[in-house]
Design a protein around this nucleic acid. Structure first.
Lengths: 199, 199
DNA sequence: ACAGGACGTTAACAAAAGTTAATAAATTTA
DNA sequence: TAAATTTATTAACTTTTGTTAACGTCCTGT
């Protein structure tokens, strides 16, 4: 296992809580490299999926299936954690599929290892809290945007915001899903918006 | 302070993690009763609002102000925790207002007390994690519904679900907000839905 | 190289939602 | 009790979105 890969994961974790080296080494033996080829699923709807992954390289999306259609609601980029938090937390089948948009390389570990660390260590328990709190803040912001902004406002906000990777790297019909509109509608919104800019 | 009020709060907390009596008593001295009259704000947008409340009786809503309009996105009922989690976590001004829909009676405490307990005690730290995890699951479910269901489907799901108090106790124009549609549109959805039922 | 697929735009039409305003019923409050 | 406010519905009209389909372009894999 490459030291630089381990260091990247450690950096993310330490951005939540400073985990001392000896506690960090409790996790390391359980890490495994995983490769996912473009287009392949890493986590599959309907299966119990309790693994957590750290994306060393590549891009992934997660989607829900509704009326036979795939609805993409999130994207994962390099240096981010990924997984079905729902499935891991509730120990029930995943409601979503996580698919590689490009060839992906991950460091993965079973969520149950984390649960064991929560019991063993105050620092790891705190990491669990900080991670969940971070997710709450992100989800709440996104949910409020869905409730109070129009699709056009959401698109403009995405353009203006910090999630530039979504705009740069993700195909528009998937961004449409992410914004909660159809691909055709997003195309129209874009036309409208550029027309306004020219004014 | 009434024992039965304390017991209700303890029950909620212990539904997340079993907090032993001696650790519980670390929180008790910091609890204060608060009364909020119908129509009054308990937490105000723009202010630093780091208190956490437990609703002993009454109903509250929280709303965001956008383009001068109040957009209600959540309701709180008896025996639930309330507050601006965002403001407490990030120690920045609240983006939302929490208002009493009926006369309310709360047990409140500063979030910073909880933070101190997180440092002191493994059990309280775990409570913090479990609470955040619970919020993640609820927010994620709601966000997905907003992304993949139509307003009509969301309304039907609300009718069929377990949040009966919202249907029973909340005025329709506020439910419309909660579902992300205008009050007029919800009225039309209801008409459509009852017409279908009769078929 | 070339055949197939993915991607983005546009058109045409139908369905749904937003907005404003009017009305009536129910509830509050003075 | 009477007046005022809140609440829900409906109508009329505009705007937006969804859907299906067609078209061209770009990319990709064989």
């Amino acid at each position: 296992m490459e030291d630089s890969d381990l260091q990247k994961l450690k950096n993310i974790i330490c951005s939540f809580v400073d985990v001392p080296q000896d506690e960090w080494e409790l996790l390391v033996p359980h890490l495994k490299y995983q490769e996912v080829k473009k287009g392949d699923d890493w986590i599959t709807e309907g299966k119990l999926e309790t693994k957590i992954g750290f994306l060393l390289s590549g891009t992934m999306r997660h989607y829900y299936t509704h009326d036979g259609e795939q609805k993409t609601t999130y994207f994962y980029f390099e240096n981010h954690l990924t997984g079905s938090y729902f499935s891991a937390l509730t120990h029930s089948p995943s409601k979503l599929t996580i698919q590689a948009l490009t060839d992906c390389y991950l460091l993965a570990f079973p969520y149950k290892i984390l649960v064991a660390l929560f019991d063993q260590s105050k620092v790891w328990e705190r990491f669990g809290r900080k991670l969940a709190e971070y997710l709450v803040l992100g989800l709440e912001e996104r949910m409020v945007d869905l409730l109070i902004l129009s699709p056009e406002e959401r698109y403009l906000q995405l353009l203006a915001g910090t999630k530039t990777k979504i705009i740069e790297q993700i195909p528009q019909h998937l961004i449409a899903n992410y914004l909660g509109v159809s691909a055709v509608s997003l195309s129209r919104i874009r036309k409208r918006v550029t027309a306004k800019k020219i004014d």
